[in-house]
Amino acid sequence: MGEPSKMRISETDGIVDVRILMKHDMESGQRKGTDGKNIPPWFINTVIVKAQGKEVFSANFGAAVSKDPFLNFKYKGSKSDKISVSWTDNRGDKRTDEFPAA
């Protein structure tokens, strides 16, 4: 399981701007290790973000996404919304981070 995600939230006129940095090594499966063998793929497959329990963003990732993915999106809501970020990777690891009201 990766480290906790970091999030920054701002609001202007009812539009919430969300920035999320997810900590994950994100291996494509094409790099070689010191032993000359390919490092097995390990990457986030799905990401779901909810505000006040309602899904406001979802994405499917693949091996081409870089280490420690960064997301930025906007939705109609309030800066005080409780936001949860959940992801699952191709090895079955899962993580959910919740961000309380500011």
Rank of each mutant, 00 (worst) to 15 (best):
K94M: 08
N72A: 13
D89S: 03
N90Y: 09
F57Q: 02
T46P: 07
N72V: 08
K50T: 15
K23A: 10
S28I: 06
S78T: 12
V56A: 06
S78Q: 14
D68I: 03
G62M: 00
K76A: 05
S84W: 08
S28V: 07
S78Y: 07
K23G: 04
K82I: 08
F57A: 04
G77N: 02
W42N: 12
Q52C: 06
K76V: 04
G62Y: 06
E55C: 02
G33P: 03
H24N: 12
S28H: 07
K79F: 02
S78F: 09
G29E: 07
N60H: 11
E27G: 01
R19E: 00
Q30G: 05
E27D: 15
G29N: 11
S84M: 10
K74R: 15
F43T: 05
I15M: 10
N90V: 13
A51N: 09
A51P: 01
G77A: 02
G36I: 10
Y75N: 04
Q52T: 08
D25W: 10
I44H: 07
S86E: 05
S66G: 14
D17T: 08
D89K: 01
T34N: 09
S78W: 04
M26L: 05
F43C: 04
S58G: 05
F61Y: 14
R95G: 03
Y75W: 11
I48S: 07
N60I: 11
S80Y: 08
K94S: 10
G62I: 00
K67Q: 13
E27Y: 13
T34M: 11
R95T: 00
N38K: 15
I39T: 02
K37P: 01
I39Y: 02
K82H: 06
W42A: 11
M22C: 10
E55N: 07
K79V: 15
N45E: 15
F73E: 07
K50D: 01
K32F: 14
R91M: 14
P40T: 13
I83A: 04
P69N: 11
A59M: 12
D25S: 13
V16W: 12
V47I: 15
N72D: 10
I83Q: 02
K67L: 05
K32Y: 12
I83C: 06
A51V: 04
Q52I: 02
V49C: 03
G33K: 07
V16E: 10
V85P: 03
N72F: 06
I44F: 01
I20G: 06
I15C: 03
S66A: 13
V65L: 07
K23Q: 13
N45G: 07
K79D: 13
V16Q: 09
F61G: 11
T88Q: 14
I44T: 07
T34S: 12
F43K: 03
D35Q: 06
T46S: 15
T34A: 14
M26R: 09
I39H: 00
K23L: 10
V16F: 12
K23Y: 14
K37Q: 15
P41M: 08
P69S: 08
Q52P: 00
I83R: 04
A64M: 11
R95D: 00
F57G: 01
S84N: 12
K32S: 12
K23F: 13
L71I: 07
T88Y: 02
W87S: 05
D93P: 00
M22V: 08
P69A: 11
D81G: 05
F57W: 08
D93T: 00
D35L: 06
A64E: 13
I44K: 03
